[in-house]
Amino acid sequence: MKRKAIVIGATGLVGKKLISQLNIMYDSLIIIARKPPKHMSAQMQFYQLGDFNNLEETLANISIGPDTDAFSCLGTTKKQAGSDEAFKQIDYDYNLNFAKACYQKGVQRFFILSALGADTKSRFFYNRVKGNLEKSLAEIGFNELVIFQPSLLLGKHKGRLLENTAQSAYKLISPLVPKTMRARPIEAERVAAAMAMTAQNIYERHRASGIENIRNKVTVIDNKQMLAMTQLKS
């Protein structure tokens, strides 16, 4: 059976790194975004979507199913979104709608980029939204749901002055920070590598065992785990 992957958030900091890795792993790579990736390959299929409120309609016309792994790196900040409501729409609603639509079409494995500190009871709005998303995704019923929780992402964030400033400050003290510290900032490339490695490990495990009837398995891979599993790539 040929392997497919479908990705939203492919033009973001992690998403751009992720699709370059998935492009090697999968026979077909479906990308839904507002603009195409800078580098397209023969196995990439690009669907332009100007309004993510129409995501479910777009997905209805795309051939995906049990042979497809779904990935989301979609996310923003309150400052970029403009309000709490707009932020929640992007980070919670769009991601949840994507996941539900994928599940209805038979997708069994879902990989989501969340954030360290995601918690439904957090006093911080950002972390509450992330925590609520994780909770809602776990209730859908994917065979396997894998949640990745990175700390501050290292890489150039277009339009994110605060995060870029924080990165500049971090560079000054990084030699003093333990390489496996739980909240140590992590390169976007390493997060993408962790996502790709995890998807490949799951595929190989299933192929070796022949077991495909896993149900409702939720795995959280936190920042410290991603640092450890990608340390040879740093």
Rank of each mutant, 00 (worst) to 15 (best):
T165K: 14
R182D: 09
Q80G: 13
K17Q: 14
I32L: 11
P185R: 06
I211P: 00
V191F: 06
S168K: 15
A81T: 09
N53R: 14
N132R: 13
R184A: 06
I173N: 09
E56W: 04
L116T: 03
H157P: 02
Y92V: 03
P178N: 07
F111P: 00
M229W: 07
F46L: 09
N97F: 03
V191G: 03
L232P: 00
R205S: 13
L137M: 07
M44G: 03
R3Q: 14
R215H: 10
K171C: 02
A188E: 01
K79A: 15
L113M: 10
Q104A: 13
F71W: 02
A138F: 05
A101V: 08
E144K: 14
K217E: 14
K158L: 10
A188G: 15
N132Q: 15
K78Q: 15
A169L: 15
A194S: 15
P185I: 03
L96W: 04
A5K: 06
L18Q: 06
S122H: 11
V129T: 11
S63W: 03
E139P: 01
T165H: 09
A70L: 04
L176G: 01
D84V: 04
P66V: 08
A33I: 09
L113V: 11
V14M: 02
A33Y: 04
A42D: 14
K4Q: 15
L59S: 03
K135G: 01
N143P: 00
N132H: 13
E56A: 12
Q108H: 12
K233C: 02
R182N: 09
D67R: 09
L161W: 12
L227A: 07
P36F: 05
V220C: 02
A138M: 08
T180C: 00
D27G: 12
Q108V: 05
Q48I: 07
E56K: 14
A228T: 08
T76Q: 05
D93R: 05
M181I: 11
G82W: 08
G106M: 10
T219L: 10
E189T: 11
Y170R: 05
A70Y: 02
L137K: 04
E85N: 11
D119R: 07
F46P: 08
L59K: 07
E56G: 03
N213I: 06
L13E: 01
F124L: 14
S114Y: 01
P36M: 08
G15L: 00
C102F: 04
I8F: 04
L55G: 05
P37K: 05
D69W: 00
L152K: 11
C73V: 06
Q231Y: 08
I62G: 00
M40I: 15
V14T: 11
V146L: 06
A70E: 02
D69I: 08
R123E: 12
L162W: 08
I62H: 01
M229H: 01
A194G: 12
R160V: 10
Y203A: 11
T180F: 14
S28Q: 15
E204V: 10
K2I: 10
N127P: 02
A194V: 04
